[in-house]
Amino acid sequence: LTVQLGNLEWHFDNPEQALKMAEELAKRYQLKVEIDNGTLKFK
């Protein structure tokens, strides 16, 4: 699973870790998370 923020990307083997990080980033920057083809992206 990949977490993508702008041109930064983090790759996780563990989806739970990816979701946890995505939630933290979304909270911190007040963004919405969307999943696009196995990639978590922020809007």
Rank of each mutant, 00 (worst) to 15 (best):
A26R: 05
T2R: 11
N37Y: 04
I35V: 10
N7G: 12
L31S: 02
D36W: 11
E34Q: 09
L5S: 03
A22Y: 04
N14I: 09
N7H: 13
Q17D: 15
P15D: 06
Q4K: 13
K32T: 14
L1A: 06
N14L: 08
N14S: 11
G38L: 06
N7K: 14
F42R: 01
I35T: 05
F42P: 01
L25R: 00
M21A: 06
Q17A: 13
E24L: 15
V33E: 00
W10V: 05
D13I: 09
E34S: 09
E34N: 06
E23Q: 13
A22H: 01
K43L: 12
I35G: 03
G38Q: 07
Q4M: 12
L25D: 00
E16V: 13
A18Y: 04
Q4R: 12
Q17Y: 11
K43C: 14
R28L: 09
L19H: 09
A22G: 04
Y29P: 00
E9D: 04
K43T: 13
K32S: 12
T2E: 03
T2F: 06
G6R: 05
N14Q: 07
G6W: 11
N14K: 09
D36V: 14
E34A: 06
F12S: 01
K43D: 04
L31D: 00
V3K: 01
N14E: 08
D36M: 11
L19I: 12
D13R: 09
N7E: 09
E34D: 07
E34L: 13
K32G: 05
V33N: 00
E9V: 15
L1P: 04
Q17T: 11
E24M: 15
K41N: 04
K32F: 10
V33S: 02
T39W: 10
A18E: 00
Q30F: 11
N37A: 08
L19A: 04
Q17H: 12
R28T: 05
W10R: 03
V33K: 00
K20C: 09
N7Y: 12
F12Q: 00
E23K: 12
E23W: 13
G38V: 04
A22L: 07
V33W: 15
D13T: 13
M21H: 09
L25G: 00
V33T: 03
Y29N: 02
Q30W: 10
Y29L: 09
E9Y: 14
A26M: 08
L40Y: 12
I35Q: 08
N37T: 04
N14Y: 07
R28V: 05
E23F: 14
K41W: 08
W10G: 00
Q30P: 02
P15L: 13
K27D: 06
F12L: 03
K20S: 08
T39M: 11
T2V: 11
E34H: 12
V33L: 12
G6I: 04
N14M: 07
D36G: 08
E16I: 13
W10C: 11
V33A: 05
L5F: 14
E24P: 02
E34C: 15
L31H: 03
Q4F: 07
K27L: 11
N7F: 13
K32V: 15
L40N: 00
E23D: 09
A18P: 02
V3S: 03
V33M: 10
Q4E: 05
D13M: 08
Q30K: 13
L31V: 05
L31C: 10
G6N: 06
E34M: 13
D13Y: 06
L5Q: 02
P15Y: 14
H11K: 09
L31P: 00
K32M: 11
L8A: 07
A26D: 01
Y29M: 05
T2D: 04
K20Y: 07
D13W: 09
N37K: 08
N7V: 10
Q17G: 06
T39V: 15
L31E: 00
K43F: 14
E16C: 14
K27M: 10
K41T: 12
R28A: 05
Q4N: 05
Q30H: 15
E16G: 09
N37S: 07
N7W: 12
G38F: 07
D13H: 09
Y29S: 01
N7R: 14
M21K: 07
F12E: 01
V3A: 03
L8Q: 11
D36F: 12
T39R: 11
H11W: 10
D13V: 10
L8F: 13
N37I: 04
E9H: 12
K41E: 02
L8C: 15
G6D: 04
A22D: 00
V3M: 06
K27Q: 10
K27E: 08
N7I: 10
L5P: 01
R28I: 08
T39Y: 14
A22K: 01
V3G: 02
T39I: 15
L40S: 00
D36I: 14
K43E: 05
G38K: 07
Q30E: 07
L5A: 03
Q4V: 14
H11L: 05
E9Q: 14
K27T: 09
E9I: 15
K27G: 05
R28G: 02
K41I: 12
E9G: 04
V33Y: 15
N7Q: 12
Q17E: 14
L40G: 00
W10Y: 06
L5R: 01
L5G: 02
P15M: 14
G6E: 04
E24A: 15
Q30V: 05
G38W: 05
N14V: 08
W10L: 08
K32A: 10
L1V: 09
K41C: 11
M21S: 03
L19K: 07
D36A: 10
I35E: 07
T39K: 11
R28C: 13
V3Q: 02
D36H: 13
A26Y: 07
G38S: 06
G6K: 04
K27N: 08
E24S: 13
G38P: 01
L40H: 01
E16M: 13
L40C: 11
D13G: 08
R28W: 07
L40F: 07
A22S: 04
N37H: 09
T2W: 08
K43M: 10
Q30D: 10
R28N: 04
G38M: 06
N7P: 11
L1W: 15
L25T: 01
K32P: 03
T39L: 10
D36S: 13
L8R: 15
R28S: 03
V33F: 15
E23Y: 15
W10S: 01
L19V: 08
D36N: 11
E16A: 13
F42H: 01
M21L: 14
V3R: 01
L1T: 09
K43Q: 09
Q4D: 03
A18T: 03
Q30M: 11
D36C: 13
E9W: 13
K27A: 11
P15I: 13
A22N: 00
M21V: 09
M21G: 01
N37V: 04
K43N: 07
L40Q: 01
T2N: 07
F12K: 01
L8W: 15
L5D: 02
N14G: 04
L19S: 04
H11T: 08
P15E: 08
D13N: 11
E34P: 01
E9T: 15
Q30I: 05
A18M: 05
Y29K: 01
G6T: 03
K20N: 07
G6F: 07
W10T: 01
G38Y: 06
I35S: 05
K20D: 05
R28Q: 06
A22I: 06
E34V: 15
E34F: 15
N37L: 05
G6H: 07
P15K: 11
L1S: 05
E24Y: 15
E9K: 15
R28F: 08
I35H: 08
E16L: 13
A22E: 00
L25H: 02
L19D: 01
L1K: 03
Q4S: 08
H11Q: 06
G6Q: 04
F42V: 14
L25A: 01
Q4T: 09
F42I: 14
L19W: 15
K27C: 11
E34T: 12
D36T: 11
K27S: 09
Q30C: 15
Y29E: 00
F42E: 01
L1R: 04
Y29D: 00
L25N: 00
F12Y: 07
T39G: 03
N14F: 08
G38C: 12
L1D: 02
F12V: 03
F12H: 02
L1Q: 04
M21I: 09
E24R: 15
P15V: 13
D36K: 09
K20F: 07
E23S: 11
L31Y: 05
H11G: 02
F42W: 04
A18Q: 01
E16Y: 13
R28K: 13
Q17I: 11
L40E: 00
L5I: 08
T2I: 12
L25V: 05
I35W: 14
K41G: 03
D36L: 10
L31I: 06
Y29F: 13
T2Y: 06
W10H: 02
K20W: 08
V3C: 07
Q17M: 12
L25C: 07
F42T: 02
I35A: 06
K41D: 01
I35F: 14
K41H: 07
F12W: 04
L31K: 01
L8P: 00
W10A: 02
D36P: 01
A22P: 00
E24D: 11
A26I: 05
A26H: 03
T39C: 13
H11D: 03
M21Q: 03
